[in-house]
């Protein structure tokens, strides 16, 4: 069993942080790797990239947004409760290299995944600018931590309730125009990563994105997480989760992420009805 030792609602009811006891995974995990979690016997296997690890405490940290039945089930776990299964670390770690000036762009819960990568890029000697965004101020997470992990932090909200009024891509454009940027790391919703990659392509700046497609085993067995990268089919679980942002077929990825949309909506609604009635 994998006990939750810390739980935080980063945005009330929607964005949740769990620190979970998983000593073997904490010892091995590197920034950029993911785990698969399953709440209980009937649960679904959900892949999530780790937001942090603490080998000394033997814990890993995940941050997720409640979007369906499975994440709603995760939300209802309290400190002291346990996930039945946590598997990992899976996927390839981020290649952390000193390249000079780096921009890290994060949207939504992608910011949590971006945090250890940003920190790592700064630690190896890069000059790191960070741009994070959310739909509104209430959904913005890890502002202080991202400030500490980078040299310069810019914040955006879609509705203008905090920071720059608009998308992360607008701020990114300004930063790129200033020149010298060698690498952009973008992690967030697929449309954001697609938009970021379109801009960086114009500027000819190398771009890395982290993908989170539908998968079952996370070890290369099922092929459910196939993505087209540079015209070739890759398995995000073993070949990724990070890929060259300029090579990813985002439109295909968006369609594939919708494969179970109808089923998920029904299942989530049913779960909420049952829970609210109780």
């Amino acid at each position: 069993m994998f006990t939750i030792v810390k739980r935080e609602e980063m945005a009330a009811g929607t964005i949740i942080l769990n620190e979970i006891e998983a000593p073997l995974i904490a010892k091995k995990a590197r920034p950029g790797q993911f785990v698969i979690l399953k709440a209980n016997e009937e649960g679904e296997r959900i892949p999530l990239t780790m937001a942090d690890t603490d080998p000394a405490r033997g814990t890993i940290t995940i941050v997720y947004m409640v979007v369906g039945k499975s994440t709603a089930l995760f939300r209802d776990l309290k400190v002291g409760d346990a996930y039945q299964d946590v598997i990992g670390p899976l996927g390839k770690p981020t290649h952390l290299e000193r390249v000079g000036k780096v921009v890290c762009v994060g949207g939504g819960t992608g910011v949590a995944v971006l945090h250890p990568i940003t920190r790592g890029l700064k630690e190896v000697g890069n000059e790191v600018t960070c741009i994070i965004g959310a739909r509104n101020h209430g959904l913005l997470i890890l502002e202080e931590q991202m400030k500490a992990a980078s040299h310069d932090l810019r914040v955006c909200t879609d509705d203008g309730s905090y920071g720059h009024h608009g998308f992360v891509t607008e701020v990114l454009k300004e930063v790129l125009q200033a020149g010298e940027v060698k690498l952009v790391v973008a992690i967030g919703p697929v449309p954001m990563m697609k938009a970021v990659s379109a801009i960086t392509r114009e500027f000819g700046v190398a771009t890395m994105v982290s993908l989170n497609p539908i998968m079952v085993d996370g070890t290369g067995m099922c092929g459910g997480c196939r993505v087209t990268v540079g015209g070739e089919t890759k398995f995000a679980c073993v070949d990724g989760p990070e890929f060259d942002g300029h090579q990813v077929d985002y439109d295909e990825l968006i369609l594939r992420l919708r494969a179970y949309q109808e089923e998920e909506q029904k299942s989530h609604q049913h779960y909420c009805n049952v829970r609210d009635a109780a």
Binding site: E42, G43, E44, R45, K69, S70, L73, V216, D217, M221, C222, G223, G224, R226, V227, T228, T233, E252, L255, R256, R258, A259, Y260, E263, E264, K266, S267, H270
Partner: peptide, 29 residues
């Protein structure tokens, strides 16, 4: 890579290991 094309590994793992044939009684579709 169209939606609706699965490896037998994925299809059978969903059905057998995850017992998706009982969906929505279990959570894996």
């Amino acid at each position: 890579n169209l939606v609706g094309i699965l490896s037998a590994n994925e299809y059978l793992t969903r059905a057998n290991l995850m017992k998706a044939y009982k969906y929505p009684e279990v959570d894996t579709p």
